[in-house]
């Protein structure tokens, strides 16, 4: 109470009081990425070759499979937070805001789920 103008309160404009959580989650997932992505690119660079059998058997091992599943969860969450900030800066029309809200809340989770399912298929030996 007592924040903003009366008309602002009626229209529901002003702080949503969720910004700090968004900010903190961006940092948290950033630190996660700082471990997961270098692990992924160093592991890939150290593979003896990039034939299917080599890559598949590496990815089927427990630690790489776990790391890649975590990578999908963490990167898609981090990307979702960053894209939201970008859209908030550049999309100003009401219809565009609704489309953007649908986009950032559906696509990253669908895409991340596809990645996780793919790793599970590899790890459990289906081909």
């Amino acid at each position: 109470m007592g924040n903003g103008t009366s008309i602002g309160r009626v229209r529901g404009l002003g702080s949503s009081h969720q910004g700090a959580h968004h900010w903190l989650l961006t940092r948290l997932t950033a630190v996660g990425n700082l471990i997961l992505i270098p692990y992924l690119i160093v592991s890939l660079a150290l593979l003896p070759d990039f034939e299917w059998a080599t890559v598949h058997s590496w990815l089927a091992k427990p630690v790489p499979a776990t790391a890649l599943i975590l990578t999908f969860i963490n990167t898609f969450y981090h990307a979702r937070l960053g894209i939201q900030v970008m859209l908030e800066d550049y999309v100003h029309e009401e219809a565009g805001k609704i489309a953007a809200w649908l986009l950032v809340n559906i696509v990253p989770f669908a895409a991340g789920a596809f990645g996780v399912v793919s790793v599970i298929r590899i790890a459990l030996g289906a081909a």
């Binding site: 898609f76 990307a79 894209i83 895409a111 990645g115 793919s118 790793v119 298929r121 590899i122």
Partner: peptide, 24 residues
């Protein structure tokens, strides 16, 4: 770079892992 990685990078990563899961 963040948005480039989010759109192009993650799309390519998904294609890669989906292709490995799909077989040789």
């Amino acid at each position: 770079t963040g948005n480039g990685l989010a759109f192009a990078g993650l799309a390519l990563l998904l294609w890669w892992v989906g292709a490995i899961a799909g077989g040789e």
